[in-house]
């Protein structure tokens, strides 16, 4: 067991973690952030992606103790407390980018990680930005248009 401190969605946590515990398990089983999904356990599908210190990581490949001192953002951290959706979430709804929804939280975070670094991506850059996240339902087209729309919303100062 090891004690670590981390911030999730701006809130500090100090927790005891087992050596072999993945960040994914810490977030889901211990801290209750079930918006983080497990789809493959080998970093291939991207459904467990979270933002760690500004970078998109697959939380199934990060050990919990490696998150010591880090800042994590999960899907639960995007909506404002008054219920207002983050512009990316709003864009996903408006463009019809959601189907079964299992890839959606991580897809939204992948879009955030991209747009935080590149506020005006081209279609190719968007496709690259979400290429680590698999979706079996949408064929990605509406996700790409949602990210484009989100960029517009963000550049206008939110929707």
């Amino acid at each position: 067991m090891k004690t670590i401190s981390l911030k999730v969605n701006g809130k500090p946590y100090t927790v005891e973690v087992e050596e072999d515990m993945r960040l994914l398990d810490l977030l889901r089983d211990k801290l209750g952030f079930t918006g983080v999904k497990e789809g493959c356990a080998e970093g291939e599908c991207g459904a467990c992606s979270v933002i760690m210190d500004g970078n998109l990581v697959t939380s199934c490949l990060v050990m919990a103790f490696q998150a010591d001192g880090k800042e994590i953002i999960t899907i639960e951290g995007l909506q404002s407390e008054d219920g207002t959706l983050h512009p990316i979430q709003q864009a996903f709804l408006d463009e019809g980018a959601v189907q079964c929804g299992f890839c959606t939280p991580a897809m939204v975070l992948a879009a955030k990680a991209l747009l935080d670094k590149n506020p005006n991506p081209t279609d190719e850059q968007i496709k690259e930005g979400i290429s680590g996240n698999l979706c079996r339902c949408t064929g990605y087209a509406k996700i790409v248009s949602a990210v484009k729309k989100a960029a517009e919303y963000l550049n206008q100062g939110g929707k």
């Binding site: 493959c40 080998e42 599908c45 290429s131 064929g139 990605y140």
Partner: peptide, 17 residues
Amino acid sequence: NKLSSYIIPTSMDMPEI
């Protein structure tokens, strides 16, 4: 029997439809 070896399309594979 893994998504790393059973290859489904990614965003990069999709054309304009």
